[in-house]
Computed example of a mutant assay.
Amino acid sequence: MKLKDLKNWLDTLSDEELEKELLYNSMDYGISGKITEINRNDDNLYYVGDEPVVMHTRKELKQLGFTDNQIANFDVEIPKGCYYVELSNEYSILERFVS
């Protein structure tokens, strides 16, 4: 979905609908919760396989000791200038594994 598609859809909602919380649901992980912010990144963000999952900028990867060749082999997960939502509901995740 492009941002303009989201805007067009939001423009069709009543003021009452616009006052409702924006929620997410991840069926893959069995978590849901409120979206508390939408982020815009100023650099490409990379994931290098660490746990917990953390996204890194090129500068951060260099500080962690990665070489330019290593960084070139990582996939850009979120390209520079994009908007994204972080899904984080640690309580729900922990609750699933304790049950």
Rank of each mutant, 00 (worst) to 15 (best):
Ile35Ser: 03
Asn44Glu: 04
Ser92Cys: 08
Lys4Thr: 10
Val98Pro: 00
Tyr47Val: 08
Lys2Asn: 14
Ala72Pro: 01
Tyr83Glu: 06
Pro52Val: 03
Asn44Cys: 04
Leu22Arg: 06
Tyr47Trp: 15
Thr57Arg: 07
Val53Phe: 09
Thr36Ser: 08
Ser26Asp: 15
Ser32Tyr: 12
Lys80Trp: 00
Leu22Asn: 09
Gly65Asn: 04
Leu6Ser: 04
Leu23Ser: 07
Asp5Asn: 14
Ser32Val: 00
Pro79Gly: 04
Arg96Lys: 15
Tyr24Gln: 07
Lys34Ser: 09
Glu51Trp: 11
Leu13Asn: 07
Asn44Leu: 03
Tyr24Phe: 15
Tyr83Thr: 02
Leu22Ile: 15
Thr36Glu: 15
Glu16Ser: 11
Tyr29Phe: 14
Asp50Gly: 03
Asn8Trp: 05
Gly65Asp: 10
Leu13Val: 01
Asp42Gly: 04
Tyr24Gly: 05
Ala72Thr: 00
Asn73Thr: 05
Asn89Lys: 01
Val53Asn: 05
Lys59Ser: 06
Ser92His: 09
Glu90Phe: 06
Arg58Phe: 13
Leu94Gly: 01
Asn89Thr: 00
Asn69Pro: 00
Gly81His: 09
Leu22Pro: 00
Ile93Asp: 12
Leu61Met: 07
Gly30Phe: 11
Gly65Thr: 08
Thr12Ile: 04
Lys80Tyr: 04
Asn25Pro: 00
Leu23Arg: 14
Leu13Pro: 03
Leu3Cys: 00
Tyr47Arg: 10
Cys82His: 12
Lys2Ser: 11
Glu60Asn: 04
Glu77Ser: 11
Tyr91Trp: 12
Glu21Ser: 13
Asn44Asp: 14
Leu10Lys: 04
Glu95Met: 08
Ser88Glu: 09
Asp43Cys: 09
Phe66Gly: 00
Asp68Arg: 03
Leu10Thr: 01
Met55Trp: 09
Asp28Arg: 13
Gln70Cys: 02
Gly49Leu: 08
Ser92Thr: 01
Glu17Leu: 13
Ile35Trp: 06
Thr57Asp: 02
Ala72Phe: 01
Asp43Ile: 01
Gly33Trp: 03
Leu87Gly: 02
Asp43Val: 01
Glu95Cys: 01
Met55Glu: 02
Asp28Ile: 12
Tyr46Ala: 06
Asn73Arg: 13
Lys59Tyr: 09
Gly49Ser: 05
Asn73Ala: 05
Tyr91Ser: 07
Thr36His: 10
Tyr47Gly: 07
Tyr47Ser: 06
Tyr47Thr: 05
Gly49Gln: 08
Leu3Gln: 05
Ser14His: 08
Tyr29Lys: 11
Asp43Met: 06
Leu94Lys: 12
Trp9Asp: 09
Tyr47Met: 08
Asp75Arg: 14
Asp11Gly: 06
Glu90Asp: 12
Tyr46Phe: 15
Asp42Thr: 13
Val85Thr: 05
Val48Phe: 07
